[in-house]
Structure formats: structure tokens, C-alpha cells
């Protein structure tokens, strides 16, 4: 690649992104503009922004590489990303979430839960969880972006990482959520174009869909023995039922990431940004196409790369990449795609990193200002400025974590974040949207149990994270406290059901207290489902407890 041409393209690209952030800035007049983009975002912008936020550089490179090792079984995650991550998130949850957030005048995910259950504790605790644990997830995306800039633009890793952090922080601070969503949507379009070309080129390179799959099926004897021992049965087969590989595939990737997206604050709050249910229905169409070409492409291209490498070099993908699965996608793309595509793919990966980081630090900023400080009555003035300070604190924390956390810990940040969010937030969110008799105590107990149990599981039971953190080893002298299969079962797998059961039991035990939040329930559900619409209320407070 011609480096000066590439740098020129990146500068033009960043110019367009900066102009979009400036456009967001010009349209941001009120706190509602800054926090929920004025609740009048175009459905195409919403769907592209949602998708681009969900898909980071590591999702394309990391998941594509993982699929090259594990095989097509990961397609179940692509299936869930479309059905749950798009259809359920927009057309089912989103419709209620949007209406309820408008009824209760809630501008963030934790504040929505807090107002719905009439509990400051829930809002502050949820905001605190985001503010404490999200920076680690942000830092892994930042690191991915920094390494990527180092490899492609030949800039120093430290400069690349800091440059990325500063650029994104500027977009968020100046443009608010409008700036974030406009830049996301442009980034999403670049990603969509790049991934569509990659998918069709890949199947074309191996002679088509059926021929490609048949060729890959015939390569079963090429699987490395260590993977066979772990349960690998071929790239076009699921791993052996109950094997370590099967548990990893099902519990972490499919369940954790597939279901976990529903409870991701930066994703769930996207439904609050559109004008009405019509926009959400339209977003389903755009989101369904976008997600297919993101996760579908990564999980189809990854396995197929084995066939291409075997035919051209006599080796499977992981052998060509010398054991580093993160190198499989870049090497494969370098081999099969024309040179001009490499420029486009560079912008695709840069887009994936920027769009994810911007949404994460926006949510961190609002967790700091809206969910924590405002609910603790620290300040009622200057909501936008407080949020901007929160953005700065969030991005500085992410940069510091990128340097001080060991690589082994940071690599687990995505699964950790998705897992604790699903276990902590999902039951309370479903209850908020569908269960009028859910009580404040039930929701609070569920959130605390979900976060507590999943964090305990990651620190002491699940081998990947427990070994990386080393806490179990330091305290009890062994890597994990329980034997297999607990070592390979994602904590979400048990923390989420237990959190849901606690929610039900505590709500039932405290069922007489529902009358105390009757007004919040009535207002929250107004116009949701079958109840007739009531005018939205402004400045609805919460009580402590």
C-alpha cells in the first residue's frame, strides 16, 4: 500500500467525521439534545449508529479469527445478533423502552430504571457500575485501534492510542449524542460497504457457497490435535456436545454476546433517540441488513479462509497466522482482495473503533453526570458541562487502564462487561418494561445479585478471567475455586437466571409495596401496550432507597 495515499485518505475521512461532529454541535441546544439527540433521530441514522456501536474492530478481526479456528458454529451468534440484537431490541423492547423513557422523562438507561422503580439507589448503583467497569471495555477497543494505527499508518502505538482518544473525546464533547450518532452513521456506511465486498469476494474465491462449504467439510482431517481434544469436529460441524469448546461457544459467545446486547446501556438507549414507533419499525429493516453483513460476514469469511489457505499454501488459517488468530483476517484480506480494497478496509476498521469508543464514553459521561451526581443532588446546574467532564474522566480512565492493566486481563474485558451487564440489568429491564407488579426492592436485589454474582464468577470460577486476574490464586492458592465445567461456563449462564429468580421472589415478598410506586407504574406504562396515552411528565423525581 502507498502510505502517503493512505494517510491522505484517513485525513479526508477524519475531515468528514469532524464536519459531522460539528453538525451535531450546531444542532445541540438543550440537555435533551446532548443526552438523547433530541429524540428525533432519523431511523437510518439510529440503525447504523446502533450497529456501528455494537461492532468494534475486535468484533471484525477477533471474531473473524475465532471463526477461522472454531468454524461455522459461531454463526449462531450472527443469527442471535440479528434476531435479538436487532428485531427484539427495536421492534419489541425498543417500542416500550422509547415510550417509557419519554413518559418518565428519562434520558439515560440507569435513570430510566431508577424512575420506573422510583429508586435513587437503582439509578446511582447502575450508573456506578457503568462508570467503574465500562472504561476497561473502552480501553480494549482503544488498544485495538492503537495497534491497528501502528500497523497500517506506521505511527507510534502510544501516539496512535492517544490520538484516537483525543479525536473521539472531541467528537463527543462538542457534538453530544447527535455528533456521536452522525459520525457513527457515516462510519457504519463505510463498514457496510467494506464488509459486503469482502463477503462476496470470499465466496467467489472458493467457487461459490456450496462448493466452498463442501471443500471445507472435506478438510476435517486438517484440524490440529489439541483442538480435536477440546471437542472440535470440523469447521462445518458444531463442537462435541458438552466439550470445553462447546461450552465456550454456547455460554460465552452465543449466550453472553448474543443475549447480552439487550442490556448494554449504550445500545439500549438508542431506542430513546427516535421520534416514534414508526422509526423503530423502519430501523429493523436497516439494522437487519447491517448486522448480517457485519457479524455474518466475519463468521462466514473466517471458516472459509481455511479452505483458501489450504488450496493456495497447503496450510490452515491458524498455521498461516503462526498461531495468532487476530492475524488471520488481515492476512486473508491481503491475499484475496485487490489493493484498493485495503484502503477501504483500513477505513472500515478505523470506523469500527471510533464509532464504538464514542458511544461508550458518551454513556460514561452521562453515568457520571446524570445517573450519579444529579441523583445524589451534587449539582442541578450545567447538565451538559457536567456530562462533558464525565466524558473526559471516562476517556482518561480508559487510556490509563490501557497502560496499567496486564494484557491478559484487558483481553477478557469484553466478555466481562457483556456478562455483568446482562446478569445485572436484564431482569430489571424486562421487569420495568413488562411487569407492573415488579417492586423496587425486587429490582434492586436483582441488580445487586446479578452484578455481584457475575463479578464473583469471573474472578473466582471462570478460568479465562480468574487466571488473568489471579485473585483466586492469591487468596486461595488455586486458579479457580470449582472444577470443570465451571471453569468453562460463562458466569452469565448462572448469574442471569439467579438474578431473575431473586427479582421474582423479592418482588413477591414485597408485593404490598407496589402501591407505593403505583404512580410511576401508571405514568411509565401510559401508552405502552394497551393503556391509553397520558401526557409525558417533566422533572419526575425519585425517592431515596
Amino acid at each position: 500500500m502507498n502510505l502517503s495515499l493512505l494517510i491522505g485518505m484517513v485525513i479526508v475521512y477524519l475531515g468528514v467525521m469532524s464536519w459531522l461532529a460539528f453538525l451535531g454541535n450546531r444542532q445541540t441546544r438543550t440537555a435533551e439534545d446532548y443526552l438523547v439527540a433530541g429524540r428525533n433521530v432519523h431511523p437510518a441514522v439510529m440503525a447504523l449508529s446502533y450497529g456501528a456501536t455494537m461492532i468494534s474492530t475486535s468484533a471484525i478481526i477477533g471474531f473473524g479469527g475465532a471463526a477461522a479456528v472454531f468454524g461455522f458454529g459461531l454463526l449462531w451468534l450472527a443469527f442471535l445478533n440479528i434476531v435479538v440484537g436487532i428485531f427484539v431490541a427495536f421492534a419489541i423492547f425498543g417500542v416500550r423502552l422509547r415510550k417509557m423513557s419519554q413518559n418518565l422523562d428519562a434520558t439515560t438507561f440507569p435513570t430510566l430504571l431508577g424512575k420506573r422503580y422510583h429508586s435513587k439507589f437503582i439509578a446511582v448503583f447502575s450508573g456506578l457500575m457503568i462508570f467503574l467497569f465500562m472504561p476497561a471495555y473502552t480501553s480494549i477497543v482503544l488498544i485495538g485501534g492503537g495497534r491497528f494505527l501502528q500497523e497500517t499508518l506506521k505511527v507510534d502505538y502510544n501516539i496512535g492510542l492517544l490520538l484516537l482518544a483525543v479525536i473521539v473525546a472531541l467528537y463527543v464533547i462538542t457534538g453530544g449524542l447527535k455528533g456521536v450518532m452522525y459520525t457513527d452513521a457515516f462510519a457504519g456506511l463505510v463498514m457496510l460497504f467494506g464488509m459486503i465486498l469482502l463477503l462476496f469476494s470470499t465466496y467467489y474465491a472458493v467457487g461459490g457457497v456450496v462448493d466452498g462449504h463442501q471443500g471445507l467439510s472435506a478438510m476435517k482431517d486438517q484440524i490440529p490435535p489439541p483442538l480435536v481434544e477440546q471437542g472440535h469436529q470440523g469447521w462445518t460441524s458444531m463442537p462435541a456436545l458438552g466439550s470445553p469448546l462447546w461450552w465456550t461457544l454456547i455460554s460465552t459467545l452465543v449466550m453472553g454476546v448474543g443475549i447480552g446486547v439487550l442490556a448494554q446501556p449504550q445500545l439500549a438507549m438508542r431506542s430513546m433517540t427516535v421520534r416514534g414507533t414508526r422509526s423503530l419499525y423502519r430501523s429493523v429493516l436497516i439494522g437487519g441488513v447491517f448486522m448480517f453483513f457485519m457479524t455474518g460476514t466475519a463468521f462466514m469469511v473466517g471458516p472459509i479462509s481455511n479452505l483458501y489457505f489450504h488450496e493456495t499454501q497447503g496450510k490452515i488459517a491458524i498455521a498461516v497466522a503462526e498461531g495468532n488468530s487476530d492475524l488471520i483476517m488481515p492476512i486473508f484480506i491481503n491475499r484475496i482482495m485487490p489493493e484498493w480494497f485495503l484502503y477501504l478496509f483500513t477505513l472500515t476498521l478505523l470506523s469500527a473503533a471510533i464509532s464504538t469508543i464514542s458511544s461508550l464514553i458518551h454513556v460514561q459521561g452521562t453515568a457520571f453526570s446524570e445517573d450519579i451526581l444529579r441523583n445524589l443532588n451534587v449539582s442541578r446546574e450545567g447538565r451538559m458541562n457536567l456530562s462533558r467532564i464525565g466524558v473526559l474522566v471516562g476517556i482518561v480512565a480508559a487510556v490509563i487502564l490501557a497502560y496499567i492493566l496486564p494484557g491478559s486481563v484487558i483481553a477478557q474485558a469484553t466478555a466481562f462487561w457483556f456478562g455483568i451487564c446482562a446478569a445485572g440489568f436484564l431482569p430489571a429491564l424486562v421487569g420495568a418494561l413488562y411487569w407492573r407488579n415488579a417492586t423496587q426492592a425486587g429490582a434492586a436485589a436483582s441488580i445487586v445479585t446479578g452484578f455481584g454474582l457475575s463479578i464473583f464468577g469471573f474472578l473466582f470460577l471462570h478460568q479465562k478471567e480468574a487466571a488473568a486476574f489471579g485473585l483466586a490464586k492469591a487468596l486461595f492458592g488455586k486458579e479457580t475455586l470449582l472444577p470443570y465445567p465451571w471453569t468453562h461456563v460463562d458466569p452469565l449462564f448462572y448469574a442471569l437466571p439467579i438474578s431473575a429468580v431473586v427479582f421474582g421472589i423479592v418482588s413477591w415478598l414485597t408485593r404490598t409495596s407496589v402501591s407505593q410506586i403505583q404512580e410511576q407504574v401508571r405514568q411509565g406504562f401510559a401508552g405502552v401496550g394497551t393503556v391509553s396515552a397520558l401526557p409525558p411528565i417533566k422533572g419526575q423525581g425519585m425517592k431515596k432507597g
Binding site: 454463526l75 450472527a78 466452498g212 462449504h213 458444531m238 430501523s283 429493516l285 437487519g288 455474518g296
Partner: peptide, 30 residues
């Protein structure tokens, strides 16, 4: 089917394509 060895993988591949088509049809519209 579709050249896959395991029928559950065939379903996953087809399911992913059909889920995307379903979203298109469903969306197809204040």
C-alpha cells in the same frame, strides 16, 4: 445440505440469511 457436514450448522447459516430477510420484510414502514 449446503455443503455443511452438520445439519445444525446448515440451520445456523440459513437462519442467519433468513433472519436478515425477515428484518427486511418486517421493516417494509411518527
Amino acid at each position: 445440505m449446503l455443503g455443511m457436514e452438520d445439519w445444525t450448522i446448515t440451520i445456523a447459516w440459513l437462519g442467519t440469511v433468513l433472519a436478515s430477510l425477515f428484518c427486511i420484510v418486517y421493516g417494509a414502514w411518527d
